[in-house]
Design a protein around this nucleic acid. Structure first.
Lengths: 334, 334
DNA sequence: GCTGGTATCGATACCGGTATCGATACCGGT
DNA sequence: ACCGGTATCGATACCGGTATCGATACCAGC
């Protein structure tokens, strides 16, 4: 049932009455082919339904038109949007994204990266700066451009595009302090695996401590950040400390859940209690109550990562070791 | 800067003191190699950091370990979850997903499919049954297993996994009629390109008409289905017809936006006005007001599509033309 | 000692393209 | 008529693996 009869370039060439080489050149638009032959080959190719074989051309050309993308999760719209940005960035370039999901697991990440590398991709886009030692060595020795995205707190292997989560945590804390908040709580999920959420948490805590303050209470759960979890954890933290006037969540999903609870419970948000998330997801601005968030340019990060890869693929030396810094903008929603 | 010095199997073989062939067999776990040589090769490979080259092995083996996935959008969590399901389904199989985004554009879809095919993938998973004629021919002539997902209303090329959107629209209408609703409105986005949303709309309309009723008013916009759009369209439709007691939205994002407006406006939901969406997204159950929705098994669909491909790749004839029907379950939320 | 069978190995021929380089034809200029 | 230059083409050698099949070694059985 296989492709015993896949049409090959040789057959196109024969049909057009030219050599394989000429057919190859004609279809690729490489030079050294007469107008007449270009037409003949094109004609023949479309007549017999030639599809081409990227495997062969990539193997021969020493470089595939695949671009590897490694993300921690697919159940999170943030990474889906990054992928959308990448897809948009490589649009029309002929490159194709292959992706791998790590589930926030370092070992899986290593396997995925290794696997990607064996496709000889035109480039690799990896989420985060914190890989395992083995994985990092793999990236360093890879002879392909590597772009690490979504984080700047650390030392990149090659190029990177993103923002500092530590700084994002700090500025959110500062904004909330400036807003007059005094009693802070924290709600987060999966901090042991989500390094970036942890960096925000720590940045926030650091800023509080510089102001002589601290989280009154924290509620850190395992598992994924979902709206549901956010709602439940908010119920819990408020039962424990109903006097909080600010809760920092590890992201907008959790914060949204918190907002839902507050609406149901009739709590005055953001007057008496302000909720702060992270990412600036689409739904936040439509919420019945205003919550604070940091708007992150996820799509843009994906897009510029794609552009860096594209540039390196064209041999543009300048793209190497490039560092693109984005700045999340804070929306207090008040 | 390229991979002038990528380590090849030949080098591993040399280091281990065996032939390329033996090294290949040892690393793949194919038979006909002595214990001693297996160890020597493995050792050598890891010592010199051999990574392997999927391009070469796929080309040689006539079949790549790539699995093509075509989705209409990446900005929609639904498709991200489908991808998550696929990733989960092929976990451990050594297959790797390549994806393409069509932006609900038939021409782009054709290009993407064609491109995928040229990777000689182990299988192709395509969203929906409604491709352009050219694209469909491409799929029919492809010598790879094709699984069309997320829809059953139509004739599949090969295997398929999903549910009937038409039926989903009907059952939601019936459930709402049984709930005693009388004055229906509809809010939707991008129906001209999103065939599945349109099928739900038409199923719903058909059920209404069978009950001697009809949508009192519809509000159909272009563009993407977002929470924001849902909120705005709800404001508009209710300004026009404040007497509606039911609004059917093309999906949960829009319905969520509707819910947000109703909360802000202090409307009694679902008593006076019930909102119905589609998909059963995570956040729905945490909402401060209850909305109706159809829960769809997105992850499971992705997973079973992956399994069909896996089965066909193993030469399992039974997987071909397989049709897996899922059943969305309605949650009225009342 | 000879035979047949099994386990292990490697030389060779691909897979389907592309890079390279030499061959050929045709041109205008002298 | 001869020459160098340009345009066009194709034979050949790869790219880095794997399938195939024959070679070799070793063993038991007679």
């Amino acid at each position: 049932m296989d492709q015993k009869n896949r049409i090959t370039l040789a057959e196109v060439a024969m049909a057009a009455g030219v050599s394989k080489m000429t057919a190859s050149r004609a279809l690729r638009g490489a030079g050294d082919v007469s107008r007449r032959n270009i037409d003949k080959v094109r004609q023949a190719a479309s007549e017999i339904g030639y599809v081409g074989n990227h495997l062969a051309s990539s193997l021969s050309g020493q470089r595939s038109s695949l671009i590897g993308v490694v993300v921690p999760s697919m159940a999170n719209i943030v990474f889906a949007e990054v992928l959308a940005g990448i897809a948009q960035g490589i649009e029309g370039s002929g490159l194709q994204p292959v992706f791998g999901v790590t589930d926030y697991d370092l070992e899986k990440e290593h396997d995925v990266i290794r696997n990607m590398l064996s496709w000889n991709p035109a480039g690799l886009i990896v989420t985060g700066l914190d890989q395992s030692g083995d994985a990092r060595r793999l990236l360093e020795n890879a002879k392909v451009p590597v772009v690490q995205i979504m984080d700047l707190d650390g030392v990149p292997v090659d190029a990177c595009a993103g923002f500092s989560h530590h700084a994002a945590g700090i500025s959110m804390a500062e904004a909330l302090l400036a807003n007059g908040r005094k009693r802070f709580g924290y709600v987060g999920c999966g901090l042991d695996a989500d390094f970036r959420a942890k960096k925000r948490f720590e940045g926030f805590r650091e800023a509080l401590s510089r102001a002589g303050m601290a989280f009154e209470t924290t509620r850190i759960a395992g598992g994924l950040s979902t709206v549901k979890a956010g709602r439940e954890l908010t119920v819990q933290i408020l039962k424990n400390r109903p006097d909080l006037d600010c809760i920092y969540f590890s992201n907008d999903d959790l914060a949204g859940g918190g907002a839902f609870h507050c609406i149901s419970a009739g709590l005055s948000v953001p007057d008496k209690l302000i909720l702060a998330g992270f990412n600036g997801l689409d739904f936040v601005e439509s919420l019945p109550v205003k919550i604070a968030t940091s708007l992150t340019p996820r799509r843009e990060i994906g897009q510029s990562a794609a552009e860096i890869v594209l540039g390196s693929a064209r041999g543009d030396k300048a793209e190497t070791r490039k560092r693109i810094e984005f700045q999340p903008t804070i929306d207090l929603g008040v």
